[in-house]
C-alpha cells in the first residue's frame, strides 16, 4: 500500500475573476523508500501541492480530492490536532528560501531544538531532556555537514552564510526522523559542491533509513541522478508519471520530451549556431488557463481533440494523459 496516495486532487483559488483551478486532478503516489521527483516549470503549482499536503491552506482556497491519504488515513477528514501530530512525527518539509523560512528573532539552536519531537527523548526530567536535545542537535548538524556547531547554534539566521542556513533547514527536517521528506526545490541557487553534498546525504538517508523523499525541482541533472520515479506537472495537471529510466528512455508526453531535451547535455553533438530545443510560448498565468489539456496552445502535436481534458492511461506503471502521445503517430 502506498504511503502517500493522492488521487484527483483539485485546488481552486478564489480570484476576482472567479474560482480558478490552480491544480486540476493531480495524481501522485509514493511508496516506502521511494524517491519520487516532481518536475515542472515555475508556475506549474508544485509548491501548492506541498501546502495542500501540509494543510496550511488559506481560507480563499478550496481543496477537493478523491483520495488524499497518508498511510491509509485520509488527511482531509482528519481534525487539526491529528494532522499536526502527523506533521510533527512523520512528515518533514524543507522549504525553498531558507532565510524566509527561519524565524529572524530566534537563535538557530532554539529553532533546531524545538523541532525535536518528544518521543525521541528518553530522559524523565527536563534537564535530562534538554541535554539530550542539545546532543541530538549537535549530532544532526554534524551529519548535515556544518563544521563548528557550538558557534552556529548561538547565532541568528541573518548572521550566518546562506548555505549554512540551507543546511540548517535540512537539519531541522531530519532531526525529527521522519518517514517522508518533502523537499521543495532544495538545491535552488546552491553552489555545485553544496548541491552534491546535499544529494549524497539524501540518497544515504534513503538507503539506510528507508526515508521516502518527494523531491520537487526543475533541476533535471540532480533529479536524474537520484530519483527512482518521476511525475511531470504542467500548469496544475499531471501529464506523465512513471519510472525514471523509462521516462528518460521513452517519454510519452510531448511536454516530458521537451523538458528532457531542453536540459543542455554536452555529450550530444549540437551543430554550430543551431537553436536550442524548447517549446514556443510560456506557461499561462492563472487568469488565462486554457480549456482541456493546458499544454494545448504550445504543443506541436495539438489537434482539435485537445480541448477536452485527456484521460489518464497507463502502460505498465507508466501513466500518461495525452490524446496524441509520442508512441502514436501524428494524424
Amino acid at each position: 500500500m502506498p504511503m502517500l496516495d493522492i488521487k484527483n486532487l483539485t485546488l481552486e483559488i478564489d480570484t476576482p475573476v472567479g474560482w480558478v483551478k490552480a491544480l486540476d486532478r493531480i495524481n501522485l503516489t509514493l511508496e516506502k523508500g521511494e524517491v519520487r521527483a516532481l518536475v515542472g516549470e515555475s508556475g506549474s503549482g508544485k509548491s501548492l501541492i506541498v501546502r495542500a499536503i501540509v494543510g496550511s491552506v488559506p481560507d480563499n482556497w478550496r481543496l477537493t480530492a478523491d483520495r488524499l491519504s497518508w498511510k491509509g488515513e485520509s488527511l482531509l477528514s482528519m481534525n487539526a490536532e491529528q494532522r499536526r501530530k502527523i506533521m510533527r512525527k512523520e512528515i518533514a518539509v524543507v522549504f525553498q528560501n531558507p532565510q524566509a523560512s527561519l524565524d529572524p528573532s530566534a537563535t538557530l539552536g532554539d529553532q533546531l531544538e524545538e523541532s525535536i519531537p518528544a518521543h525521541l527523548l528518553a530522559g524523565k526530567w527536563f534537564w535530562q531532556r534538554n541535554a539530550e536535545r542539545k546532543a541530538l542537535a549537535s549530532k544532526v548538524l554534524h551529519k548535515v555537514g556544518i563544521k563548528d556547531h557550538q558557534d552556529c547554534l548561538q547565532k541568528f539566521p541573518h548572521e550566518v552564510a546562506r548555505d549554512v542556513n540551507h543546511k540548517m533547514m535540512i537539519a531541522m527536517a531530519l532531526v525529527s526522523e521522519p518517514e517522508l521528506l518533502i523537499a521543495d526545490d532544495p538545491t535552488r541557487g546552491m553552489e555545485a559542491t553544496t548541491k552534491v553534498q546535499l544529494l549524497k546525504l539524501l540518497t544515504r538517508m534513503n538507503q539506510t533509513k528507508e526515508l521516502s523523499i518527494l523531491f520537487i525541482s526543475h533541476d533535471l541533472l540532480a533529479i536524474s541522478s537520484m530519483a527512482n520515479t518521476m511525475t511531470v506537472l504542467y500548469c496544475g495537471q499531471t501529464v506523465e508519471s512513471g519510472k525514471m529510466k523509462q521516462l528518460r528512455k521513452r517519454p510519452l508526453h510531448p511536454y516530458t520530451k521537451a523538458l528532457l531535451d531542453s536540459a543542455p547535455s554536452f555529450r550530444k553533438e549540437l551543430p554550430v549556431k543551431s537553436d536550442l530545443s524548447a517549446l514556443d510560448g510560456t506557461i499561462p498565468t492563472l487568469q488565462h488557463l486554457p480549456i482541456g489539456c493546458r499544454l494545448g496552445p504550445r504543443c506541436p502535436r495539438a489537434q482539435k481533440e485537445c480541448v477536452k481534458v485527456p484521460a489518464v492511461r497507463r502502460i505498465h506503471e507508466h501513466y500518461y494523459s495525452c490524446h496524441y502521445p509520442l508512441h502514436r503517430d501524428k494524424l
Binding site: 494543510g55 499536526r84 502527523i86 512528515i91 522549504f95 523560512s101 524545538e114 519531537p117 527536517a173 525529527s176
Partner: peptide
C-alpha cells in the same frame, strides 16, 4: 510570513 508556515509544517502547536 514564510517561517510561520515552516513552523506549522514542523508540527508546532498554534500556541507555541
Amino acid at each position: 510570513k514564510g517561517y510561520i508556515i515552516a513552523a506549522r509544517s514542523r508540527g508546532l502547536t498554534n500556541n507555541q
